[in-house]
Design a protein around this nucleic acid. Structure first.
Lengths: 356, 356
DNA sequence: TTGTAAGCGTTATCAG
DNA sequence: CTGATAACGCTTACAA
């Protein structure tokens, strides 16, 4: 039952060499005769040697410098959560020599992103975690990092052709399908649903469109539903502004059978505010993220379900993956899909609690 | 930004003593003059010394023996998941000297539980993780462990007066309320709901009743609902047997407006099997746990939602808490409520994936 | 191509 | 009461 925990010393003994030699083959440092190399490798195999990582990090007194390139959390609470996750991982990994520096940029300011991404380059980094909210502007940096062979992990927004070590996030398409299910569930008869994008630059944020596709697919893939449910989408600008309300007025007038709205961003509260000041139409609302404002409306019953994108978890796992790669030399998955948590009034508390 | 990571050597220097002395005050081993003790303590405070746990575990070459007392996973896949979680934590903690032995018992055999719990006592343990599925029979062992000052953590089933270090699980009451919400959501008019307990010995499993209470509370706490929804409960025996079907026949005959069934155990598939062989009544079904059989019915649309009790996570965190207490000397929470995950066809994949 | 020895931060033993 | 010192398993010069 209790294996006697075999050390590199044991391997050395069995092979009649010194630990130095074993170490050299362990790390492919060369300068070992092919003959003993094979022999040692075989013994390692046979004994199923597992390096003691904790002794290793103590031995190599090295540190790993990781940069987190991420929107400023003081501007948007969503990103504050990510920062928390990054910090949490940082604390856990500190003893392994992991040092994290956050490079924060204003998410509405492309230049700020470019500036921070440029600033990174000076830092002599071992790894980078990045939330590439600006698609076009991210690409050149990916190339640069790739050329420098600095491993980088993407989170929140996936970009396929990035050469990244991994992507942490959610499946936008499936997330949209889930929203479809939640709006449709228990709906007594056919009706119209609105997919509302409330963002600055939709073209530059592919995952919002992925959500819409998934939402539409939920209905189109089930023949019974395809005929009785209609899905429209709208690009709503300037939330809070009076024009925002007018846009919604027009939509609701035009589709009197509208029974549900799916907000593809974390701004469901903007629609909830509108619905609150409008005659009761019994419209369901599904959106993203556990922001204070959304939670308040969920409490009031104006928002039925929230899908948790788990920004904190995304930051946390992004750092963990980088550490797995850098310090633990583990192979990391090309992609980690975080679960699509369905939040409602009754189970909210435990997701907030888990975020500690 | 980069604190210079202070070591016990630094403290010793600053206090003009040797590291041996510092170590002694760090561990309250005595044999230190009060004068230097205070001085060292003050320096530690001042420099905010954080022991390097990884060096510590290397130094003290000690191991920690933890026992997991848990139902046999080969009998019930639910518990297999818990075993997986325990093993996962075990692997992660191995390098810290944590050794886990699982003591498995047949969950339908009280004597098997007693035998295993008794066997434990021989093992000279540092900690115990237990799923106390037998309420009455667990109590004497809790006392015994408490007397021996062996810290123990409960999971899955809470027992208040146990003196346990912590409890890992879910809030049964809130879980029931959530089920209420899921059955009620979008229900066009008043109806009857059935709370179905499918278990051997309900009196001995308090959390099933907690779920029922929560379910009833969901309706009774909202005056608008209290009048139009009726909740009944039933204790169903011998699933699979013909008598099981008869019980259900009778209930459905008696309550023609029954629109939903909440199964408080993981046996929703038993009801789904019944509904499949019965004229379509459009009855919603909500139950627990991602068992193969449940998932198959969810795929077919017979089960709408499953609440995930996350048996794997329970096992995992149970071990982690014990390790936090034993090896990392961290204070652990008296209770950890795992989130009430809502699973439906559209988000299932990611919960299965996360279980790796 | 190989072996030796010092060092990582901590614990634990043992002599003063 | 106190201070050296070996040990934990591994890395990394450096010497042979």
């Amino acid at each position: 039952m209790n294996k006697p925990t075999i050390r590199i010393k044991d391997i050395a003994q069995k092979a009649n060499v010194s630990i130095g030699t074993v170490d050299r083959v362990l790390h492919n440092r060369g300068r070992v005769s092919e003959e003993v190399r094979v022999k040692i490798l075989q013994i390692i195999e046979e004994l199923d040697y597992q390096p003691n990582m904790i002794a290793r990090t103590l031995g190599t007194n090295r540190t790993y410098r990781i940069a987190a390139l991420i929107p400023d959390g003081t501007i948007d609470p969503y990103w504050q959560e990510s920062q928390n996750g990054i910090e949490k991982a940082g604390k856990e990994l500190q003893i392994y020599g992991v040092q994290i520096t956050q490079y924060r940029f204003n998410q509405h300011d492309v230049q700020a992103f470019i500036d921070q991404a440029t600033a990174l380059a000076q830092a002599n980094l071992d790894g980078i975690l990045v939330a590439p909210v600006f698609y076009r502007e991210s690409l050149p940096f990916f190339e640069q990092w790739h050329a420098l062979s600095i491993p980088f992990v993407l989170f929140n927004t996936q970009i396929e052709e990035s050469n990244s070590l991994s992507y942490i996030g959610q499946d936008a398409f499936q997330s949209g399908s889930l929203a479809g299910k939640l709006l449709h569930y228990g709906q007594p008869e056919g009706c119209t649903f609105l997919v509302a994008h409330i963002a600055e630059d939709i073209a530059n944020s592919a995952h919002l469109l992925g959500k819409e596709k998934g939402f539409r697919a939920y209905f189109s893939q089930q023949p019974a539903l395809a005929s009785s449910y209609k899905v429209i989408s709208a690009d709503l600008k300037k939330p809070g502004d009076i024009s925002f309300f007018h846009q919604l007025d027009r939509l609701l007038d035009h589709y009197p059978d509208m029974k549900g709205i799916f907000v593809t961003t974390s701004k469901a509260y903007e629609i909830a505010t509108y619905l609150q000041h409008t005659p009761e139409r019994n419209i369901r609302l599904v959106g993203y993220d556990l922001l204070e404002k959304n939670l308040a409306f969920m409490e009031e019953g104006l928002i039925d379900f929230i899908i948790n994108q788990n920004p904190q978890g995304q930051g946390y796992w992004g750092i963990q993956f980088l550490a797995d790669h850098l310090v633990f030399k583990k192979k990391v998955a090309l992609r980690k899909n975080l679960p699509l948590d369905i939040i409602t009034r009754e189970n909210l508390a435990y997701y907030l609690e888990a975020a500690q």
